[in-house]
Amino acid sequence: METETIAVPWSVIPDYRCFGCSPHNPGGLRLRFTAHPRGLQARFRLGRGFESYPGVVHGGLTGVICDEVMGNLIVIARRRPAFTVSQRTRFVTPLLVDHEYVCVAELSANDSGALIQASAEISDADGALCAGSSATYQPFDFRDVRHQITLDDDEVALLSRALLDPEPTPNGVTS
């Protein structure tokens, strides 16, 4: 049984170009998200276009993938976008080109005030841990960051409406 893909709020903008999750970015990762009992997950397989050493995925992409799944979990569960303030990633083993992996993100139970804490793990097809990451995020309102992001008034309105609906489930994710 295939799990239903969760649409990110950004998908209301017809040509959004997020490197991590947009299907419109030909050079991007094109991650798709599904609900996970702990939060949100993305299954992925990266080809040679994302290689560093022969046969090895560039290590920086490990952090990008974790950040993407954590960040989208926050948007979906908390109904607010958030900028990454800090991120720490621990590499257990390199990710290999053309191998299946899954990244699972969850929110921390001990958020500190206005900041949101999240963590993510990447595992291989056998369930072995390959990397782990933890990050702190600062939520924002689109109207307050207009000088930092290029959204017109109609796009801000679309995104604001998309963040209002639907109601999250106990783990923060709707499926």
Rank of each mutant, 00 (worst) to 15 (best):
V57G: 00
H147G: 15
T84W: 05
D165R: 13
F44P: 04
A42Q: 10
G60F: 00
R161G: 01
L95C: 06
L46K: 07
I122P: 09
L151N: 05
G49D: 15
I122D: 01
G59N: 05
L46M: 12
L46Q: 07
G49T: 10
E155M: 09
G55H: 03
P81V: 01
D126F: 08
I74K: 13
A105W: 09
G60M: 00
I76V: 12
G71N: 07
V64H: 06
F50M: 09
G55V: 01
G55A: 04
G39Y: 11
F50V: 07
S134P: 08
A109Y: 03
E155L: 06
S160R: 10
P54N: 05
D111A: 08
A105K: 14
I76H: 05
A109R: 15
A118N: 01
A109Q: 14
G59A: 02
A114C: 04
V75N: 08
H36E: 07
S134H: 15
L61C: 02
A125Q: 13
C103N: 04
L95W: 02
P166Q: 00
G49M: 13
R88C: 06
F44M: 01
F142R: 09
I149V: 15
G132N: 12
D124V: 02
G71T: 00
S160E: 10
F91S: 04
L73F: 04
I74Y: 07
R90M: 08
R161E: 10
R90L: 06
A120E: 10
A35G: 12
T62R: 04
L46H: 03
D152R: 14
V92R: 13
S112N: 15
A82G: 01
G71A: 14
C130V: 12
V64S: 11
R80M: 14
I149W: 08
V104Y: 11
A125P: 01
A105Y: 13
R43H: 14
D152W: 04
D141T: 14
Y53H: 13
S119R: 15
D141C: 08
A114L: 09
I74F: 06
D124N: 04
R48M: 07
L163K: 03
C130H: 08
C66I: 11
L164I: 00
A82E: 05
T150Y: 12
R143G: 14
N110L: 13
T150M: 15
V57Q: 12
D165I: 06
E100M: 01
V156H: 06
R43C: 13
R90T: 10
G59F: 04
I149S: 02
L95G: 03
T136Q: 13
E68F: 01
A118H: 04
D165C: 08
Y53P: 00
R143E: 15
I76D: 02
A105M: 11
L107Y: 05
V156Q: 10
P37R: 14
